[in-house]
């Protein structure tokens, strides 16, 4: 395996972690806001607060890890993406900043403010939407070169159906991932009512998810046929993903094995996400940048990988400790520890 492949695989894996952990976090905020508007807040808020409180900072680090890593392994991407993403990425930063700090302000400062909860929920939809634009841009066709400097065409971007298909998928995916996880988490807390509500959300968002995902593949056929063809070559990964989706839905429909359903859902997204990533290979940005011409020097690549391995040896046990103390501690989960 070449250094380029190792680098991009590690980064893609971390982006995948961020998408799963981040989606749970974003979606939880949306459900929380929704339940406050509906006056059912007492049911969900407790469950959601208990999950989010100890782990929210960790979520953000996965994201930082990804973009610092991509600059390290592929410095040319800093130039190309950095130049064109000024506005979209700044919007994402501002939303992330508002979300992160207001979460802390609310939960450690003044609790139960409706305005905070609403804004927190709104960022849960807007952040994935704004971040997903990066994936759209990477498909090519929106960036042109002007005197050696990359320029993004906002007009093309905002009028493309592909852009909006990806935005819709990102939002639906957030809600789906989050509701599957929270169904299981609520059932662990033995809160029947919250479990029921979350289960209903899963059933609502399951079908739109598949429709949106199919829509993107369809749109790609027009927009970037090379990518579309390589997706077809990997059809089995997407087929597996579909099967996992169906089994997850079946389990939740029949109110069985919510824990298994979460793992199947993660598997579903893993196959789809890696299928997408592999079919994107070797391009980081169509058609200007591949992982080979944007790669760093060998010395840097090797030292990054070494640091990554050492860092993981430090972090994995710590993460395990965190999860054991909070997410999987039976007493804490049921709210008997404060």
């Amino acid at each position: 395996m070449s250094l380029e492949i190792i680098g991009i695989t590690v980064l893609w894996l971390f982006l995948f972690f961020y998408i799963i952990v981040g989606s749970i976090d974003f979606g939880a905020g949306v459900f929380n806001a929704h339940s406050i508007i509906n006056g059912k807040q007492h049911v969900l808020s407790k469950v959601i607060q208990r999950y989010l409180s100890p782990v929210w900072e960790v979520t953000n680090v996965f994201f930082v890890f990804f973009f610092v890593g991509i600059i390290g392994f592929f410095p040319d991407s800093a130039f190309l993406f950095g130049s064109v993403l000024l506005v979209p990425a700044s919007i994402s930063i501002i939303l992330l900043a508002l979300r992160g700090s207001y979460y802390a302000f609310e939960s450690y400062g003044s609790q139960g403010h409706r305005g905070y909860a609403f804004m927190y929920g709104a960022t849960g939809i807007l952040i994935p939407a704004s971040l997903s634009v990066v994936l759209t841009i990477s498909e090519g066709g929106f960036v042109y070169m002007d005197d050696g400097q990359p320029v993004l065409s906002y007009e093309l971007l905002f009028t493309s159906p592909l852009t909006w298909a990806i935005v819709v998928l990102s939002i639906v995916a957030v809600l789906y991932i989050s509701s599957v996880f929270l169904t299981w988490y609520a059932s662990k807390t033995e809160d029947q009512e919250a479990t029921g509500i979350m289960r209903k959300y899963v059933l609502i968002w399951a079908v739109p998810l598949i429709v949106a995902a199919g829509g993107i593949i369809f749109e790609l056929q027009n927009h970037n046929s090379a990518h579309f063809d390589s997706i077809l070559n990997l059809w089995w990964m997407f087929a597996l993903s579909f099967v996992l989706w169906a089994v997850t839905l079946w389990l939740i429909w029949n109110k069985r094995k919510y824990g298994l359903a979460v793992w199947l859902m993660i598997g579903q997204f893993a196959f789809a996400f890696f299928g997408y990533g592999i079919s994107h290979y070797p391009y980081l940005l169509y058609p200007y940048l591949t992982i080979y011409d944007g790669f760093t020097n060998e010395a840097m690549a090797i030292s990054l990988i070494v640091v990554f391995i050492l860092g993981m040896m430090l972090l994995l046990p710590s993460l395990y400790l965190l999860l054991r103390l909070f997410l999987f501690d039976p007493k804490y989960v049921k709210g008997k520890r404060e």
Binding site: V64, I71, P75, A78, T296, S303, G311
Partner: peptide
Amino acid sequence: LALLWPNFMQLAGHIIALPLFMEVF
């Protein structure tokens, strides 16, 4: 750093990305 100084980060990424990466850890 990447959005405002893309030319710098392209060059610096080749040489000084390691401590940035370690900082995240």
